[in-house]
Write a protein that binds this DNA or RNA. Structure first.
Lengths: 342, 342
DNA sequence: AAATAGAACGCAAACCTTTGCGCTATCTCG
DNA sequence: CGAGATAGCGCAAAGGTTTGCGTTCTATTT
């Protein structure tokens, strides 16, 4: 049960009794070919269901019109939505995409990159794995002049372009939203302190407090891990303080949902007793009770931006640039104590 | 800023002053090549960072070791998780994957398939778009002897293999779980009646009732659309009945979450007043209050199964088979009225 | 009528790799 | 010492497409 050999220009040429070049030119409307000949060629090509062999073309032109993507995983909505945006702009520009996944592992990330280079993609888009601290494997791309765009978790800023979100500003914005809607003492639940994203969002939170001349209290900040359980634990700790906060900013969706559970178990009302705000881009926020106010990533738009930036570089630009796709605040019920102040 | 031409066997051959064939054989440890020659070749290949050109190989062998995937969308967790499973088995077998998305549109689905055939993938995996009712575009694959495996939403059962879940049995299982844990009158919220998935799950629900000699009441079944809003509306309608149900089976996660909202707004307790059970494979279920019992798809495993089945066909099997990857019941708090009966 | 133009098409190289076969030394054995 | 074996390497074709250039007619111009 062998796979049937696809028919080639040569097959058509033989059947028509002309040369391969004539067939090739006929199919692309070259003026050098007579009209009736051209029509005969096209008719036969259609009849035989001819499809140009992309490998021959790639071999000839050395440009397969494929872009490679490396993400930590494809299952997380954040990444899949970004991929969706990238794929769409790629497709609209005649490019295919190959998606690879590092599973947050340094070694696999290196493998992914190797594979993509071997396939000779025209450009690469990457989000670093959490494990990655050595970035030399990406330098190869510079040597071979293959464009690369980082997003979200980036590195080698002076060599490669990147697209990021405004983590500092968004956390600041979220904190100010709480202050404007009646919250006075705001707790912050983050993740491991060495992560860039934690630093930035905490920085935004602190900045907002400073701007409003609110004294910073260390015990209002809980940073451990980015999990549902840690969110629960952090909120329990904050709520057990002698002078508990009246609002909590959860640095990711899982942290916020964990916190929500803790608040409810303490028989406190949201947002009247404790206002809550999270980060997410999924539907969860609307499903929980009360609906969760959250900083929302514009993931699809981010994907589009990334794709366009890479295509620009493939087409010749070698400017190193950093673009920012801002978050927006999706205001729901969980954050607003006092609608009048807002 | 032209892309640097990758170096070829020819380049190495010239630099070493030997023939191309010698270099080729040297790199693959052919016994025909002398040891010192071989080592010299390998050393230079490494130094110049030589990578075999995959297009030349594909051209030669007519097998690019790529499999194509068509899904309705990549953002939904269900699909992205399945894709993840497929990709992993593909990668472990030396295959790459190209993922395309039909966006639930018939025309785009046709385009995706065209593209994949043009790329000359060795096999195709597809889940039909909701719009698709004409299946002739897939017949081309049969003509060209390109293996195809359908999953979830399938067609042309006698021609192509497929992997599905046990919709009937899982709904039956869920219903029986409710009966065993103390529920007496169970409502069902589904989607548009013409969808296969709705028919099957409703069938399973009804079957369980019949098995338990429970009379079927038409007003306990609400089928409109598969949305959060429809779930809310359906539950409101069920709860307004003079003799309201004491349990609800939501046929998808969004339906179940909508129903949960309605139940809470009616000031009824879950599961004491109304037990609730849904379908989902995401984290939501643990985040809501109370945690939602749900029929869970084994999405990753399903992806693995699909991938293995396709690879089997690529390797020569032409048996048409249908595999079933069963759902499992993830029992949480929302469904259990009476722990003792259970 | 002769010359020239131009239309219509074929030849062959190039892209890169694999592989069957042919070639040339060197070696071994009788 | 001569004959056959063998190690070590090169030649060339194949796979499908594009494209510059060469070739062959026919038709137009002078």
């Amino acid at each position: 049960m062998e796979r049937k050999k696809p028919i080639s220009l040569k097959d058509l040429a033989i059947e028509l009794g002309v040369s391969i070049s004539t067939v090739s030119r006929g199919l692309k409307n070259s003026p050098e070919i007579g009209i009736e000949m051209r029509d005969k060629i096209k008719a036969l090509a259609k009849k035989r269901n001819y499809r140009p062999n992309p490998f021959a073309m790639s071999l000839l032109k050395n440009s397969p019109r494929i872009i490679g993507i490396i993400v930590p995983d494809i299952v997380t909505h954040y990444y899949s939505s970004i991929i969706s945006g990238i794929s769409d702009v790629a497709r609209l520009n005649g490019y295919s995409t190959i998606i690879t996944s590092s599973y947050e592992q340094y070694e696999l990330e290196k493998n992914c990159l190797e594979d993509l280079i071997n396939i000779r993609v025209e450009g690469v888009i990457a989000c670093l794995s959490q494990q990655t601290t050595d970035y030399t494997h990406f330098e190869v791309l510079k040597e071979q002049n293959i464009p690369l765009v980082f997003f979200d978790r980036i590195c080698l800023k002076n060599k490669f372009s990147s697209v990021i979100t405004n983590n500092v500003e968004s956390a600041q914005m979220a904190t100010e939203h709480l202050l404007k809607t009646g919250s006075k003492r705001i707790g912050f639940i983050g993740g491991a302190n060495h992560l860039e994203i934690v630093k930035q969002r905490k920085h935004g939170y602190l900045q907002a407090l400073r701007d409003h001349k609110i004294p910073i209290e260390k015990e209002l900040v809980f940073c451990e891990r980015i999990t549902y359980q840690a969110g629960y634990k952090g909120a329990c700790q904050l709520l057990s303080l002698p002078n508990r906060p009246d609002a909590i900013l959860g640095m990711t969706d899982s942290l916020a949902f964990g916190a929500m559970k803790a608040i409810k178990e303490h028989n406190l009302r949201i947002p009247e007793d404790v206002a809550l705000i999270g980060y997410t881009d999924e539907l969860h926020s609307d499903y929980v009770d009360p609906p969760l106010t959250a900083v929302t990533h514009q993931t699809y738009k981010m994907g589009e931006t990334i794709g366009q930036l890479l295509l620009k570089q493939i087409k010749g630009s070698n400017k190193v640039e950093q673009l920012v796709v801002p978050c927006i605040l999706s205001i729901r019920k969980s954050s607003i104590k006092n609608i009048y102040d807002y």
